[in-house]
Design a binder for these strands. Structure first.
Length: 304
DNA sequence: AACCGACTCAACCGCCTGCCT
DNA sequence: TAGGCAGGCGGTTGAGTCGGT
C-alpha cells in the first residue's frame, strides 16, 4: 500500500506561480504567518495549490531578504569547502550563506560551480581547496574519529576564517589538547585544527550520515550521473565503529577503490582528457594517509 | 528566420524524520 | 509502542531562454 498523497493532485494547480498567487501567499504569511500548517494554508487563503508547493514558493522565492544569482567568490569558496566536507547537504550549506536557499545553491552547484572548477579559473581556485584524505583509528582521547580532509594550503588563514564563518552562532568551542572541537547541532560533531577537519564517529552520527551523500566531490562532468556519492566514504563511516582494525582498513580501502573506479568511468564516458594517477599512500603512526589528489586533482584540472 | 542543442532554474516528486495521538 | 501525518530535504524534471549554425 502506497503512501497517501498530501493533497488531491487533480484538484491543485501545478506549474509556475502567477503574480496574483504570489501576492496572496506573501500577503497572508506576512500578516498571519504560516500557522504552523502548510497543508491547510492554501485552503485558508483560497488558492488551489498544494501546501508543499506553497512552502517551497515562500522559502525559495517570496520570503524576505533572499538573494538570487550573483554568487561571490567567497560564497563559491564556502560552498565548495562545505560540499567537500559534508557532501550534498544543501540545507546545511544554505544555512551558512544568509539569503541563499538550498535550491539556489543546489542549482548553482549543478549548473555552474562544477564547471567553474573544471575551467582554468578553477585550477587556481582548486589550489586553495587541495585536500588530502586520511583515516585515523583511535585518537588519544579514545574517541573514534575520522580525519576527512586535510587542506594543504597551510600558509593561508583563509580556512581558519572560513570555518569560523560557516559554523552556527550556537556552536560551542572547547579545547582538547591542541585542537579545537566544534559542535554544531546541524552537523555531525567535527573538530577543527589548522587545515584539518575531524568528524567524530558515533552511532547517531554514523546512522544519520548514511541518509546523505558522502562528502566527496561529486561528478565534475555535466552528465546526469553522479559519482562517488555513496560508496567509499560512507563505508569508511560505517566501519569505523568496528573494533577490528584490519577489517576497518580493508573495508575503507575497498570503498576508496570503488570511488576511484566510479570516477574514472565517469571521466572515460564524458571526455577524452588524459587520465592520470597522482597519489601516495603511507602508513605511519597508526594512520593510513591517502593523498587523494589523484581523484580530486584530475577532474578539476583542464588540459587546455 | 528557423532550427537545434545546451543551459538555467523554478517546481515537482518521493523518501525520511520527528512529532503527536 | 505503533501508526498517521506534516515538514524537510535532496534528486530530478521540464519549460523557457540563449547562443550558435
Amino acid at each position: 500500500m502506497g503512501r497517501a498523497p498530501c493533497c488531491d493532485k487533480n484538484a491543485v494547480k501545478k506549474g509556475p506561480w502567477s503574480p496574483e498567487e504570489d501576492a496572496v501567499l506573501k500577503s497572508y504569511i506576512e500578516k498571519h504567518g504560516t500557522g504552523n500548517n502548510w497543508i491547510s494554508l492554501p485552503h485558508r487563503i483560497g488558492i488551489k495549490r498544494c501546501g508543499k508547493s506553497c512552502r517551497l514558493r515562500w522559502l525559495n522565492y517570496l520570503r524576505p531578504n533572499l538573494k538570487h544569482g550573483g554568487f561571490t567568490d567567497e560564497e563559491d569558496y564556502i560552498i565548495c569547502s562545505l560540499y567537500i566536507t559534508i557532501g550534498s547537504r544543501w540545507s546545511i550549506i544554505a544555512s551558512q550563506l544568509p539569503g541563499r536557499t538550498d535550491n539556489d545553491i543546489k542549482n548553482y552547484w549543478n549548473t555552474r560551480l562544477k564547471k567553474k572548477l573544471l575551467s582554468k579559473q578553477g585550477k587556481a581556485f582548486h589550489q586553495q581547496l587541495k585536500v588530502k584524505f586520511e583515516s585515523q583509528k583511535i585518537t588519544s582521547t579514545g574517541q573514534n574519529q575520522i580525519l576527512m580532509f586535510h587542506d594543504e594550503n597551510t600558509k593561508s588563514p583563509l580556512n581558519q576564517t572560513l570555518y569560523n564563518e560557516v559554523v552556527d552562532p550556537s556552536i560551542t568551542y572547547f579545547c582538547m589538547e591542541d585542537q579545537v572541537m566544534i559542535q554544531n547541532p546541524n552537523m555531525e560533531t567535527f573538530s577543527w585544527e589548522q587545515n584539518q577537519v575531524w568528524f567524530g564517529i558515533d552511532d547517531a552520527a554514523s546512522s544519520s550520515y548514511h541518509h546523505h551523500s558522502s562528502p566527496s566531490l561529486n561528478s565534475m562532468s555535466s552528465g546526469s550521473s553522479s559519482i562517488g556519492t555513496n560508496s567509499s566514504l560512507q563505508m569508511s563511516h560505517s566501519t569505523i565503529n568496528n573494533t577490528d582494525h584490519h577489517d576497518q582498513e580493508m573495508l575503507f580501502m575497498t570503498g576508496l577503490e570503488n570511488l576511484q573506479v566510479e570516477l574514472f568511468d565517469e571521466i572515460a564516458n564524458t571526455n577524452t582528457q588524459e587520465i592520470g594517477l597522482r597519489g601516495t599512500e603511507t602508513l605511519s603512526n597508526n594512520c593510513l594517509d591517502h593523498d587523494i589528489s589523484y581523484f580530486i586533482d584530475y577532474p578539476l584540472f583542464s588540459n587546455e
